[in-house]
């Protein structure tokens, strides 16, 4: 069977999220005044970081965990690049590598604490988040730092008719995640997240799988931090605070079950874009910015309810 069909059959939520996304995207295109290639590109550039953070978060959640430190890793990435470039002026590539290194290290620490020490993921990643935010504020107490011009220009680039940022949004998961997903790691991750005991009994190396899951989560967030740095052109130790919760919301909307063991990265990406477009639409409809929080919350509840309603209809009269 075609892999796309296999995925849709396994996780119908992805289909729902994608369909909703296409719908919203069309509405947005049609109703936004003064839509130019440039404004489209800039808008999309703002959305891509969340999609990557959500992708990474999905991987952590699928391992039957959660990663509250994703926003902090993104922030550290941003701060390391901006503050570092301020010091050395031209070796941005070096600082990008350093930012990715910090991300991988944070992920490794998260993963080892969860897998080897068997500490609850919520607590471990909460602690990591705290440490990283503190470190970020120490490095850059006030927004500032330097970002090289080529970085700031990058989000506006087009490859042919397609904005570079969209290519990045597709390529990063395609290169980092999908080979792993199609390999043994994919099954190892889903089975470890569904039932670690049964996975172990089936010969899956559960602990290394979990460590890898958290490292991937942080890696995606670190990459997202690079993109955020390109978008904002400066360093800000508070820039990542909203990303964690939004990424979790994106995962839920995209069909990643919080109890672990199921879900898709494409669903999480669709969920991130969906939430993002809803915010855009509300804004262009003139809704007060504060109401956006309320609306996003309502949408989150609706997103979780859809599969439950389906289950209720199927089950008929049975209770619990």
């Amino acid at each position: 069977m075609n892999p796309v069909f296999v995925t849709l059959r396994r996780e119908p939520a992805v289909g729902v999220a994608s369909a909703a996304l296409v719908l919203l995207f069309s509405i947005w295109i049609l109703t936004t005044p003064n839509l130019t290639v440039l404004s489209f590109t800039i808008t999309m550039a703002q959305k891509v970081p969340l999609t990557l953070v959500a992708a990474g978060q999905a991987i952590a959640i699928m391992s039957k965990g959660i990663d509250l430190s994703v926003g902090a890793v993104l922030t550290m990435s941003n701060v390391v690049i901006a503050a570092g470039t301020a010091v050395t002026e031209h070796s941005t590539i070096l600082w990008i590598a350093a930012a990715l290194g910090v991300g991988l290290l944070a992920g490794a620490v998260n993963g080892l604490c969860v897998a080897l020490l068997e500490l609850p993921p919520l607590i471990v990643t909460l602690a990591t988040q705290s440490i990283l935010f503190g470190a970020a504020l120490y490095i850059l107490p006030r927004p500032g730092g330097v970002v090289e011009t080529w970085m700031v220009d990058a989000p506006l680039l087009l490859i042919g008719p397609v904005p570079l940022v969209l290519i990045v949004m597709v390529l990063v998961p395609a290169m980092l995640w999908y080979p792993l997903r199609r390999g043994r790691f994919g099954l190892a991750l889903l089975s470890s997240g569904a039932d670690p005991g049964a996975a172990f009994a089936s010969g899956v190396r559960v602990k290394p799988t979990i460590v890898m899951a958290y490292m991937l989560s942080s890696l995606f967030s670190a990459i997202a931090g690079i993109l955020v740095t390109m978008n904002s052109g400066s360093g800000d130790a508070t820039i990542g605070t909203s990303y964690t919760m939004n990424a979790i919301a994106a995962c839920v909307v995209g069909g990643v079950a919080l109890q672990g063991g199921r879900g898709t990265v494409s669903g999480a990406i669709a969920g991130a874009l969906l939430i993002s477009f809803i915010t855009n639409l509300l804004f262009s409809m003139g809704v007060n910015a504060y109401w956006q929080y309320v609306i996003t919350g309502i949408i989150l509840v609706l997103a979780i309810s859809v599969p439950l309603i389906g289950k209720l209809i199927r089950r008929g009269g049975e209770k619990s």
Binding site: R184, A194, D195, A201, S202, V204
Partner: peptide, 17 residues
């Protein structure tokens, strides 16, 4: 120890893919 949200194929080849 079957995994409900995986296919029969995934369940059978788990650990032996």
């Amino acid at each position: 120890s079957v995994f409900e949200h995986l296919s029969v194929l995934d369940n059978i080849i788990l650990g032996n893919a």
